[in-house]
Design a protein around this nucleic acid. Sequence first.
DNA 1: CATTGACATGTTAAAATCTAGATGTCAATG
DNA 2: CATTGACATCTAGATTTTAACATGTCAATG
Lengths: 187, 187
Amino acid sequence: MSLRHALLGLLAEEPASGYDLTRKFERVLQRYAWHAKNSQIYPELKQLAADGLVSIIETGPRGRQTYAITEAGQAELRRWMLNPPDVFLVRNEFVLRLFLLTAVEPDEARTLLSQVAADSAAALAELREQVEKFDATAAPGTTLPISRLVAEYGVRSFQTLHDWAFWAHERIGQVGTDPHPRVTADP
Amino acid sequence: MSLRHALLGLLAEEPASGYDLTRKFERVLQRYAWHAKNSQIYPELKQLAADGLVSIIETGPRGRQTYAITEAGQAELRRWMLNPPDVFLVRNEFVLRLFLLTAVEPDEARTLLSQVAADSAAALAELREQVEKFDATAAPGTTLPISRLVAEYGVRSFQTLHDWAFWAHERIGQVGTDPHPRVTADP
DNA sequence: CATTGACATGTTAAAATCTAGATGTCAATG
DNA sequence: CATTGACATCTAGATTTTAACATGTCAATG
């Protein structure tokens, strides 16, 4: 049950309402790390509050309830972070589809790979834009915040995916379809 | 419910028993693409059989039941493969922990990153060994099978993870701990 | 001032998944 | 020939997750 710790982790950064957290999941976490719907988030917040790991620190308009992590919550989050499992079990439908690519005709596989190359290029461009915006405003020579390090991992991952899709596309079947233009790394 | 399609995909490659499928999940799928326990696999196989997407083609010793995909199953698998979702939702506890790295002290984060670098180096070495063994036996100049393409994705992903962990480790806090030796790409 | 859309929190029933077993077969080993 | 370990299937109960709704508030817009 990683959802608890995902919520604790987000609340450790700053207090937030169920609505805020739902939007964070939708905007960033869900594409890279974890996904959860509001129908799961709200009950889990209540449970966390019942367990004393978070508490409501403010109630605002429209019934808004702002949660903050408690000291017990901090301790639990730390405990979890410092005790990773031996093997991480993965559920990634994208990679699953890669593994099952033999189930379609080579031509179709080529089409799918071409789509992967295009999608990853788009994701890469978007992430890179965010990163560059950040780097422009950040003071030079300063230590990078962890969020910037994580973003770097995203950029590198998408670049790898893109390169691979391009490479695999060229190797999979016959010629004919023209691939999407390849995106290269920044200088 | 991707489990159905994971099973269909594996059975499309070759007939197998629930036991065979469970082992395939344990040995390869679970680390990269999807994980499922036998307590989920056996009922799902029954359901697939009830739906006419697979059928028992052989019963062997120790009650072994070998399943094969049916034509209806092939059609369903193809339909699924050719209709990917707009966005892939991800559940990856490893990446989640990366996102939450701010929750621990810089020194602890460095230790964790160091561990990531070591683990990814090990995984990379293992995968590379398999790939090299395959490449040595494969006829040169032949078209690569899709499984080789997927393995290549694995190799590149782990190399990226390793490089990043090394890079992030150097940037995260102060000096002191000596990192694991860095693994570089093959020539 | 009516409408719209973002804000905001929930519930319920069904489906998927996990934990933790139970049960039995067969081949190889000492 | 007793033991061990891999082979092999299966279930029950609890937990997690999803899909699909249900309800209401407030700010901005025309």
